[in-house]
Write a protein that binds this DNA or RNA. Sequence first.
DNA 1: TCTGGGGTCCTAGGACCC
DNA 2: TCTGGGGTCCTAGGACCC
Length: 414
Amino acid sequence: MKTIFHLDMDQFFVAVELRNQPWLRGKPVVVGSFTNNRGIVTTASYEARKYGLRSGMPSIEAARLCPQVIFVAPDFSRYVDASLRIIRILRDYTDRVEPLSIDEACLDVTDIAPHWGGVDALAHHIKDRIRNEEHLTATIGAGANRLVAKVASGMQKPDGFTWLPPEKVAEVYENLPIGELRGIGPATERVLRGFGLQTVGELRRFSPDVLRMRFGKWADVLIMAAHGEGDDVVRLPDDRPLEKSMGHEHTLRRGLKAGPELHGELHRLCSKTARRLRAAELAGRVVTLKLRYSSFATLTHACSLSRYIQHEIDIFPAALYLLHQVLDQSQDVRLIGVHLSDLVPVKRIRQQDLFVNTQRNDDLMQTCDEIRDKFGEDAVSFARSMRSNDHRARHSSKQSVYYRPFHSQPFAPK
DNA sequence: TCTGGGGTCCTAGGACCC
DNA sequence: TCTGGGGTCCTAGGACCC
């Protein structure tokens, strides 16, 4: 049997901000955006949570519930730095460390715990190091698999440690609300409550056949989870699966109709995505456009290309083509996004299967990436993505050459 | 109250082929 | 003219996670 740690940083983004701005300590603080009455709460401090503030809540509602709340704009580069340093601390103990997100990680401590005087002592040693070196607190849950460890880490927050050995799982799960299990979100919870189920104990005793009828093969995952069974493998860095998709989306400050401004935004998103693809040495074959209208109606539209692409000069025409195909001109666009999927490492693709990928092209993009590294994302842009205050772009955008992504032949938009 | 942005996985239906 | 069944690929959308 294994011992898995699930480490969860306490109010992570807020905690990083409090470390840098100590005068905010003890106050209701929220990391999140709040411009034009738009934006959401990303993380709420424990003081703010007393007022009912939660992650995902619209900022305007947070301000209504707690008028004295202090908003701090997120600075993701700081959170990433802190996260990387914490992962480095964890790797001092074992190489069996798998980051799950920016503020969570799994560790397999089966073999190392005895050398540290046991599971309990090891957990506190790790927590102390993070506190001393990073001035941040973490909560650790321990269990025989990842799922149980995750439940355990949710039991005593913040700055806690909970160990749920197998003999204790049944007792703790008996009265655990079903929504606490990873994988049971609002929709599944609604269905299960419709069956009269409130706790994991009740779920465990419920008819597997009824669950299978309603949820298909997902039912067996639920049943296993309810019995405290689950995956106990913590992957090494080299074993981790490659990214399956990559993309960016952006909620606009105000609703936009079709035009150079929207095209410019789309091009910016294509550039950001292309940059990350190049950095990861990946190329993709499926381009997906995402739109959300002011009514909040959301749609996606995708096309598969005949070749793998990596650069914005290939991604952007495909995305623009999709936009022209689906855009409802009578509605304002609230959000626009672009994603690439069916990703493969560039190394694995024969050169001729890469789309418009000449050496010259690579050099140009590399230069652009370097300039952006130094001066920011907006330092380099291509004529077609110029904003609406550029009259040449306004006119030239109508005369742009578009590519039909399936054949890579130029064609004129309708 | 009015809903961010990064992802993963699953399902269902249609097109197409044999 | 209406017709099987299996397989694959593609697309759209939903649920979930942090």
